[in-house]
Nucleic acid binder design. Structure first.
Lengths: 344, 344
DNA sequence: GGTACTCCTGACAACCTTGTCGGGACTTCC
DNA sequence: GGAAGTCCCGACAAGGTTGTCAGGAGTACC
């Protein structure tokens, strides 16, 4: 006796094929056949079943189906740093698009740059038996994913490489990007260039710093410790740092920023300042072209990144078992004005 | 005989409790006890089990667990228009945060303003037995969710109300917001004000238009058909429309936009124009304060919206069975400059 | 030595669905 | 009338996990 008595949204047992079968006076297997459009059901019988399904509001339990079929859960997991960051939401959307093309749903989670949280999310998704995992690493160690990869759950790392694991990875050319920014500024006559980056423990931050140094060297400029500030940046911190670097006897005349957040913080700190240094930001952002002056950036397209990662993942799911790949996507310097100012 | 022979990521059967039990020489139930930290397992036995778990890379299958326990799948579904839109990614993040507090994972999907896709996503999520659903309606009919709601899956609609269903809904005060924008402009001497909104089939677009008209009436201004343009707006379309409204014998002196996308399109169309109309946008956006002039907006905080919706959802999951609620969140006019210009 | 515990472990059923297989009712054909 | 085939349909097991219950081994006590 199944009582689905059901007043106002009280949590009740959902109707199952058994309930449908009982109501329609058929066996549960027949219900299954109808639900799956299998042949071999008399039209009248099928109609009785469909009526019962409608009456009970039955919907096939995909969890049970997955268990029974044992193959795919039709989901992929996406672990990123923060969906609210436009860079990652763009990436998310692109991954979602590819997933949709392959008939999969997407589970997302934000790690907030916390390795423990990243790990927790990844493993939780694996426990849910996602068909594959796309991870923007927050931590530097990913040994915990080895059993998962070994068990056949493909994992693709995006934006930053994993640690302690060999796996597919999609990166952007951070070094060339930062070096290019410096070269561009040097070409416009700047000799004292500041770099404001994120915490050096973050791969992209370290790489961009490396590119910054390479750029200086190529331009024949010396590396000055005091012109570099790495670390998590609050808007207030950025303002203070910037003030310090733009003052004194030999102030910096140009700024390179390490990511979109820092670029925005710098713009805010500079707002209303009379003389502004030249500026090139890493990562493009909306409205960069409408600011005064328009902001030049080294851009990597999050959509392309997300698409590449997802497509790599689905290639693996399709049986591609070539050795793990590392894809490095090019970045593009978009000159809009802020990077082309001559030094004061 | 379970062969998990496993070279290079080939899809293989994952280890189950049965495999662990066999390897550890115990019953499957004992493995279950160890995995769940249940008491009543001898320390030595537990260690044998743990060793076997590590050796096999076993991870409990949450799908099977859900099926067995029958209660919660630990997931909620989030159907929105487009994660890449900063408004919705902010909403997503907030919902994710609340979900995390309640120990749930989030399934997301973008409908792209397509009712069929919205429906498909919602029902797919329900078939996955999400514990609850948050939906930004694309369509105007939601009868398809009635069986789900009746079966005890709480649904909360955000940003736009559902059609054909009575359910929890969280909105923002679109009418007051748009009316406020008009009042503000009128206070600054504007008498010919343009409204550029989204397709009137979209609830928020229609409501904002209504607010616009109310604002005009309150200010003693007449409603002029030719000063209103509703519909999906391409950047090029916006530019053309705008040109038309700002020219002629009695040109508009102020613009109210219907959402963040349109605001950006207007800004781009106006870039470099010598004399710019006053402007108030609906929805805040990053860097609005850094533009020249800074853009005044009617702002609703997507984070607050997402948080309210998620908290309402979890209240339902907690057993709250009061009648469906409709929450209308206030909007705030943020005057930054672009809305305070006097008419030319 | 028997009783009554405690401690640890395992057999079995159940969650919801589908794949396999067998069989009953009917038709067709010799 | 019997053989063979077709069309529908249902019983049963399985997928991975946990709740229930029963039982064996060991200890403590009279």
């Amino acid at each position: 006796m199944t009582t689905l008595s059901n007043q106002r949204g009280r949590r009740v047992r959902r109707a199952t094929m058994n309930d449908v079968a009982r109501l329609a006076g058929v066996s549960i297997k027949t219900v299954s056949r109808v639900v799956n459009d299998e042949p071999g059901v008399h039209a009248d019988t099928a109609e009785r079943v469909l009526t019962a399904i409608a009456r009970l509001g039955f919907r096939r339990n995909i969890g049970a189906l997955n268990l029974r079929r044992g193959s795919s859960t039709g989901t992929i997991g996406l672990v990123l740093e923060d969906v609210a960051n436009p860079f990652y939401s763009g990436l998310t959307r692109a991954a979602e698009e590819v997933a949709r093309r392959f008939g999969r749903q997407v589970l997302t989670g934000s790690s907030d740059e916390d390795p423990a949280r990243e790990r927790e999310l990844s493993l939780e998704f694996c426990a849910r038996r996602v068909d594959g995992l796309i991870v923007v690493p927050a931590g530097t160690q990913h040994g915990h994913l080895m059993p998962e990869i070994a068990s056949g759950t493909p994992v693709v790392f995006v934006d930053r490489p994993p640690g302690g694991v060999v796996a597919d990875t999609v990166l952007v050319d951070n070094v060339a990007g930062a070096a290019g920014a410096v070269a561009h500024l040097a070409r416009h006559g700047h000799r004292r260039i500041t770099f404001l980056g994120d915490a050096p423990a973050i791969f992209t931050a370290a790489e961009r710093l490396r590119g910054f140094r390479e750029g200086l060297a190529t331009a024949g400029l010396g590396y000055e410790e005091r012109l570099v500030a790495m670390g998590p940046h609050t808007p207030a911190g950025v303002a203070a740092t910037l003030r310090q670097m733009l003052e004194g006897s030999s102030p910096a005349t140009a700024v390179v920023t390490g990511n979109n957040r820092i670029t925005v913080a710098v713009l805010r700190a500079l707002a209303g300042a009379p003389a502004r240094p030249a500026l090139i930001g890493f990562d493009d952002f909306e409205l960069a072209d409408l600011l005064d002056p328009p902001v030049s950036v080294v851009a990597s397209d999050p959509g392309v990144l997300g698409k590449a990662a997802a497509e790599l993942l689905f290639a693996r799911l399709d049986g591609d078992d070539s050795p793990p790949r590392r894809i490095v996507l090019p970045v593009r310097l978009i000159a809009r004005g802020s990077g082309e100012a001559k030094p004061a």
